Simulated scan of single mutants.
Amino acid sequence: MPTFQGTTMQKAIDAGLLALGVARDQVTVDVIQEGKRGLLGFGKQVAIVNLNVIAPATPEPAPAAPVAEPAKHHLPHHSNPKRDDQTALALVQSYLEDITRELGLAATITSERRGDHVWYQIATDKEALLIGKHGKIINAIQYLAQTEFNHYGKAKWTIMLNVGDYRERRDAAVRRLAEKSAREVVARGTSVYLDPMPAFERKAIHATLADNAYVTTHSEGNDPRRYVVITPQARR
């Protein structure tokens, strides 16, 4: 029996009807799991349903009629739903809308693909609630949005989330931190260990100091506690 998923029960049923090419009154629905929104993605569950196509009644053949080989009626075959990038992006959009709604925020969410990155821009009057201290909330939401896309999509796209101009301001701050830390390393002659950062911020540190003749950089640890180490360049 085909199984379908969605962020809500209705979306799961709609996905099944679309995949099977039938109307609502042509199927019976068995609920496997009711969807839960959760908060910031925690405790979230997708809705899962089974759809069983109701076979149309066929009249019994007349006794005197010659027995013929029965016609073969093929219903659309469905295993697991195929991964689809546009569907995955729509689910990410729905996920972000659910979060802002749960937080009671009036927000407008737009998206734009730039190469292998898909940016979701959130405009709201209460930016701080979505950004959090040192960007912890926005980074957590972005991680969960990436997980959502990876589950349903097939492309190796990176999901990026921005609230106002936070990412631009944060990128400038990270690069200033890189340069300041490099000067400290040169002055003290010892390595500096930065706080854990998401991958895209660590890349900004590495890129900023890539041409610095006095220091080198590398990352240590495991996500989400992976961090950058800035070390004095070995003298030749």
Rank of each mutant, 00 (worst) to 15 (best):
F4G: 04
T7Y: 10
T8D: 03
T8N: 00
M9W: 06
Q10M: 09
I13N: 00
I13M: 00
G16S: 07
A19Q: 14
V22D: 07
A23S: 07
R24C: 06
R24I: 14
R24V: 02
R24T: 02
V27A: 02
V29P: 01
D30M: 11
V31T: 13
V31A: 09
I32W: 03
E34K: 07
G35R: 03
L40S: 00
L40K: 02
G41M: 00
G43A: 06
G43R: 07
K44S: 15
L51V: 05
I54W: 05
A57G: 10
T58D: 10
P59Q: 10
E60W: 05
A62I: 05
A62N: 14
A64H: 15
A64R: 12
V67H: 10
V67Y: 02
A68Y: 10
A68V: 14
E69P: 01
E69I: 12
P70K: 12
L75C: 08
H77R: 14
H78A: 14
S79W: 11
S79P: 04
S79F: 11
P81R: 06
Q86T: 13
T87G: 11
A88S: 01
L89D: 01
A90I: 05
L91D: 08
L91T: 06
S94V: 12
Y95V: 01
E97V: 07
T100W: 01
R101N: 09
R101L: 13
E102G: 06
L103G: 03
G104H: 02
G104V: 04
L105T: 02
L105Y: 05
T110V: 04
T110P: 08
S111L: 07
D116S: 14
V118C: 09
W119Y: 13
Q121R: 13
Q121T: 10
Q121C: 05
I122R: 00
K126R: 15
K126W: 05
L130P: 09
L130Y: 08
G132C: 07
G132T: 07
H134D: 13
H134R: 11
A140R: 03
Y143M: 11
T147H: 14
F149R: 06
Y152P: 07
K154V: 13
A155C: 04
M160F: 13
M160E: 12
L161P: 03
V163W: 04
V163N: 00
D165Q: 11
R167P: 05
R167K: 04
R169T: 08
D171T: 12
D171C: 11
V174N: 06
R175A: 11
A178G: 07
E179G: 11
S181F: 04
E184L: 12
V185C: 04
V186E: 06
A187K: 15
R188F: 13
S191M: 13
S191C: 13
Y193G: 01
D195P: 09
P196W: 00
P196L: 00
M197S: 04
A199V: 10
A199K: 10
E201R: 02
E201K: 04
A207M: 15
D211Q: 14
D211T: 03
A213V: 09
Y214S: 09
V215M: 05
T217A: 08
H218Q: 13
D223Y: 15
D223W: 03
D223A: 12
R226L: 00
Y227N: 05
Y227S: 09
Y227G: 03
V229G: 05
V229Y: 01
I230G: 00
T231Q: 09
P232R: 03
A234F: 02
